[in-house]
Design a protein around this nucleic acid. Structure first.
Lengths: 262, 262
DNA sequence: CATTTTGTTACTATAATAGTAACACTAATT
DNA sequence: AATTAGTGTTACTATTATAGTAACAAAATG
């Protein structure tokens, strides 16, 4: 948790970046007041920040209505930030290798607070095609989320549950807090997580943690995803746990070398 | 040209973003003093900005040496900025359509100052594979650059030439300023630009402008790229000018609707 | 071990931002 | 057409955040 009140923290920069973060695939356009209310920044300050971003080319303003959109500079910054992220470059070959060896769908993600940031993903054509968001909230309903929760310390876990309001996404989603807690406990002793069609109907996943081996802390997770009609859970557990744990081990080595920590 | 001295411009935000812009594929790691000298920001202020970016997760610091790298937050911001850019989403189908109809390599870019920002690209396997940078400086040596220059007003063109120091990239690259000026003039009357192996040996390109039809200004360009061994320049000019101009027209419509202007 | 370089902290004058409030302008409603 | 509500933009200062100097610590270098 950052101590944001020291002298060596720029609130202005934080505000500016929080504005840029409001734009994305599902929000290509926003208005000034919308930005002001969403960020909690007063309207004049919002205007200053937005105006700055426009002048620098990160945002642009429609002429008719004055709605704001991403500008060319945001596009190029985005490209560089995406492809310049060394962990992304490092995990690609690891996941690709496993993908071509075993022909299974694989996903990976990093923790950011109590969210998962999707890192790199390969999907088999047999899987129900689902367009996953880049940042995912539902830790309790996904294999990657469960294994992350199982590796948090009890204080962090309490803090997570204190604000949690589970949403039922499939008939099998766990929505009772006690059920979720029990599942997390089981996951911890098991060493890997199971998502039995709780997030998307027809998809079974197993997950393992990406650990920083130096600090002994979770920083993300990998998962293998299977179509339930072709793969019963029992056979997955018999055949693929080794693959999963090997992959997670390789990913953990990468993470540890890169010095990622949460 | 932005008037950056008004009250409604945040210098702090500008500095913070300029730091983030120093990172990318070819510069995954940088030191504090490096950042300070490159941006011209005083060391303490750099420290404040960098510290902020670290606390927010946009940068991370190596434990041993204290070198800085992009963090997970920069990765997710990058992804959203890239895929949330509506012009990118809009130009994809246009270029894909032409690509599948004519089986030729196609490139597109937007202007940013006197640089080109690569937008979307499709490449045929017959083309010499070249890894283009996302931001390109050599306007004088590329088809997309030439057509952009040909559409600038004389003041802007003078300003461009006043700082230009051409680099010879192939035996055919124009390095004499007078030669370049003559070529720009010829391009202007021709209506499309020709790059005859001046940027990469063995690659001939033709370029046309993406115009904002409302403001009558250039905002970018598209180009068709051919391997010179299979396509002599004469046959390209006979067969593909129509394709090029149609594509440029469609791209211009998109740009105009989006309200992109330079 | 001495020397240079790089990162971090202390301190304060100055400049930049926050926030209130008023204003212009458009869109919606009557 | 007139009224209202809403959004974006500007004016104006108190406040506070930042810039920059300088000193210091900690590595890196020789």
């Amino acid at each position: 948790m950052p101590s944001k009140q020291d002298q060596y923290f720029s609130k202005t920069l934080e505000k500016g970046l929080s504005i840029l973060n409001l734009f994305g695939r599902e929000h290509p356009s926003r208005s000034l007041t919308e930005i002001s209310t969403l960020t909690g920044i007063n309207k004049t300050s919002t205007y200053r920040m937005v105006n700055t971003l426009i002048q620098l080319g990160y945002l642009r303003k429609s002429l008719n209505d004055k709605s704001l959109r991403l500008g060319p500079k945001a596009f190029s910054l985005g490209h560089e930030c995406f492809h310049g992220f060394d962990v992304y470059q490092g995990i690609k070959p690891i996941i690709d290798k496993t993908f071509f060896e075993h022909h299974i769908s694989i996903d990976s993600a990093l923790i950011d607070g109590y969210k998962l940031i999707s890192l790199y993903r390969r999907e088999m054509p047999n899987l129900v095609s689902f367009h996953l968001p880049l940042i995912m909230d539902e830790l309790y309903a996904r294999a990657m989320g469960k294994i992350v929760l199982a590796n948090l310390d009890s204080a962090a876990l309490d803090s997570y549950f204190s604000t949690l309001e589970p949403i039922r996404m499939t008939p099998r989603t766990l929505v009772d807090i006690q059920d979720i807690k029990a599942d997390i406990k089981a996951t911890k002793t098991r060493g890997y997580s199971i998502n039995n069609m709780e997030y998307i109907a027809g998809v079974i996943s197993i997950g393992a943690p990406m650990m920083n081996l130096t600090t002994k802390s979770v920083v993300g997770a990998v998962s293998l995803d299977f179509p339930s009609k072709d793969y019963p859970l029992e056979s997955i557990e018999q055949q693929y746990i080794g693959v999963l744990l090997t992959l997670a081990g390789e990913a953990s080595d990468l993470i540890t070398n890169a010095g990622i920590r949460s």
